[in-house]
């Protein structure tokens, strides 16, 4: 019963918000993260690197800025890649990185516009737990809803859907 109510309400909000909220496509790669905004094209293309001050737990830099620090950091700063072999290895840091990218796109619009729906590419053959980790990270990073697509399917889209 609750489930069907949930489904109906999702459908209504989906129809209502779908046209005004910004839907986002993300290629959450081990090396680079790219973000596509519906109607605007690719807006972010940055390395998947986060630099963190271990003493304070503060995020110092994300993306291009953080990549410049790799291999050059003092002991208390760690510039790390939160994804390993295509799947999330450090959940907390991945979520912070996604939040940064999603907010970068979202804050450029008016504040009353609903939070975006997000579509993320994942490698084939990842486990249910790894899929769930991606969905949770995206939701906690500020997405309204999260959906997944197989990366090879996404890569082939231009050819199979002309």
């Amino acid at each position: 019963m609750m489930d069907s109510i949930k489904k109906v309400s999702r459908k209504i909000t989906g129809a209502l918000f779908g046209s005004i909220s910004k839907d986002i496509g993300i290629d959450l790669g081990t090396a680079n993260t790219l973000v596509y905004v519906r109607g605007r094209g690719i807006v972010i293309n940055e390395p998947s690197v986060v630099a963190i001050n271990k003493r304070t737990g503060q995020v110092l830099a994300i993306g291009t800025e953080a990549k410049k620090m790799v291999g050059k950091t003092p002991g208390h700063i760690v510039a790390s890649r939160p994804l390993v072999d295509g799947v999330i290895s450090d959940f907390e840091v991945t979520q912070q990185m996604l939040r940064y990218f999603i907010e970068k796109v979202h804050k450029e619009s008016f504040s009353f516009i609903p939070r975006p729906r997000v579509l993320v590419g994942i490698p084939c053959g990842v486990t249910e737990v790894e899929k769930r980790a991606v969905i949770d990270a995206v939701i906690m990073a500020g997405a309204r809803e999260a959906y997944l697509i197989d990366e090879p399917m996404a890569a082939a889209m231009e050819r199979v859907y002309p």
């Binding site: 839907d23 986002i24 496509g25 993300i26 290629d27 790669g29 680079n32 790219l34 973000v35 596509y36 519906r38 109607g39 094209g41 690719i42 293309n45 579509l119 993320v120 590419g121 697509i149 990366e151 399917m153 996404a154 890569a155 082939a156 889209m157 231009e158 859907y161």
Partner: peptide
Amino acid sequence: LTAVVRGTGIVLENI
């Protein structure tokens, strides 16, 4: 380099 994210874009535009 951008093939996957362009693909997600195509899916979003034609959901």
